[in-house]
Amino acid sequence: MNGRRISYFEASARMRLSGLVDADSFSEFCPPELRQTSPHLAQLGAPQAFDDGVVVGRAKLAGHAVLVAAQEGRFIGGSVGEVHGAKIRGLLDKALVKRPAAVLLLADSGGVRLHEANAGLIAISEIMRAVLRVQAAGIPVFALVGGSCGAFGGMGIVTRLCAEVVMSEQGRLGLSGPEVIETVRGVEEFDSRDRALVWRVTGGKLRRTLGEATRLVDDLIPAFRAAAADLIARYQAHPLAPASLVALLDEQARLAARSERFAGARDGREIWQAAGFADASRVPELSVAEFNLHLGETS
């Protein structure tokens, strides 16, 4: 692999994909020249994109067949509209037939596209069902979250349905964005311009500490690639079992314990303190390696 340090956060969806998968292995489905664009944007005066903000296709990763979808966060916030959502759903349908080693979802999205809100909401529900169906068939879906829009709204739910969630510290994961909460509940509830606070509440280190993210990696495309390759190898050795009643009762107990333990918590520092970080206020400054070392020692 080349030694260039390419920021995953800064890269476009297409750059991320080309750095993530094996060289020259990517083949796009429904490519831009097919012009499968959104029919709903023009009436609201918004420009369209030839790929509707998501790139889907097949590729190899460390030699294993994978299906991939990469959302483009810079096109209308990576939002899910009718076509965008249908491309991801179609990819998941294909996974049931092709049975790749994994489906990689490079999420970078604020959720439903408001210009076509109803179509977007239904599409996300369809993606949720499709992810569940694919994983019930033993094919793991990995979410990679490290783009400028993070994974919010319905895409935040979809991300947490995935068997694995790989995040960088820069990545953010949640349901309602800080701006929405501030607009509805006021700046005292959530100051969306306090970037440090936003990251302590939604960022990769917080999500990894809670177990919402299963890997924390550096903000580099090769780091995401290495994590995805390692996860594929692990699932090849131990295939994904469909979620059982016992597993979901365990998860229920885990989430109930979290709600009880952190009943009044409003800042990531409280979570880090409970996780045994000596100085919770310094966690954002730790390198990924230092942070992972600490989690490994205490968990």
């Binding site: 476009s12 969806a13 831009p32 020249e33 994109a49 030839f50 790929d51 483009e72 810079r74 096109f75």
Partner: peptide
Amino acid sequence: RAAICGVVSSGNLEVLVE
């Protein structure tokens, strides 16, 4: 084959070459 450059975002554009 066709190629695409750029991303449609505020103050930006995409160019599809065929």
